[in-house]
């Protein structure tokens, strides 16, 4: 029995994307297999590791926990949309300069999560940064250099605020 397919239309990094998908296909799989955007990585496929984090309609989401059919009409952003041609975003550059990655598997998820955080109106404090970044897992770095990278990007972008004294 072949499963009936549904047509999904959305934008990914500003480009219109249309795909015929079965309802059980995750948004992550659609991005990778239908749109050819393999920057979004799938680690655990049950919402724990955060490698597949993307931005949907302005909010960070786990793309393994959304079905592609649910992205109908949505504005989707993935790691492929961060750099401007050959020019890395300030956050991407900071990951490079601060050695915020080793194997790189978790990096797209961290980049999208931190990109979202840096776009929010409230300033980034150490406490908020650690709270938000605790969403995602990295098995290589021990997190220290990821925190350094996001801190450096926040400072460069004028988004950093020293934490209030406890």
């Amino acid at each position: 029995m072949s499963e009936p397919k549904t047509t999904v239309r959305c934008t990914v990094n500003g480009q219109a994307v249309q795909a015929d998908v079965v309802p059980r296909m995750s948004l992550a799989d659609m991005l990778r297999e239908e749109a050819g955007l393999t920057g979004t990585h799938l680690g655990c496929e049950h919402g724990v590791c955060g490698a597949c984090t993307i931005i949907v309609n302005g909010a960070p989401v786990r793309s393994c926990l959304m079905f592609a059919v649910q992205a109908e009409g949505a504005e989707v952003r993935t790691v492929e949309g961060l750099a401007d041609g050959e020019t890395l975003s300030p956050l991407q550059r900071a990951f490079w300069e601060k050695h915020g990655l080793q194997c790189g598997f978790c990096t797209p998820g961290f980049l999208m999560l931190a990109t979202w955080m840096l776009e929010q109106p409230e300033p980034v404090t150490e406490e908020r940064l650690r709270h938000v970044l605790s969403s995602n897992l990295c098995r290589c770095t021990g997190y220290t250099n990821i925190v350094r990278a996001v801190t450096a990007a926040a400072k460069e972008m004028g988004k950093w605020a020293e934490s209030a004294a406890a």
């Binding site: 919402g47 955060g50 984090t53 949907v56 909010a59 960070p60 989401v61 786990r62 926990l65 959304m66 999560l113 955080m117 709270h131 938000v132 605790s134 969403s135 995602n136």
Partner: peptide, 8 residues
């Protein structure tokens, strides 16, 4: 949970 879980 975590920030991206709270989005959905």
């Amino acid at each position: 949970a975590h920030t991206p879980i709270r989005s959905r």
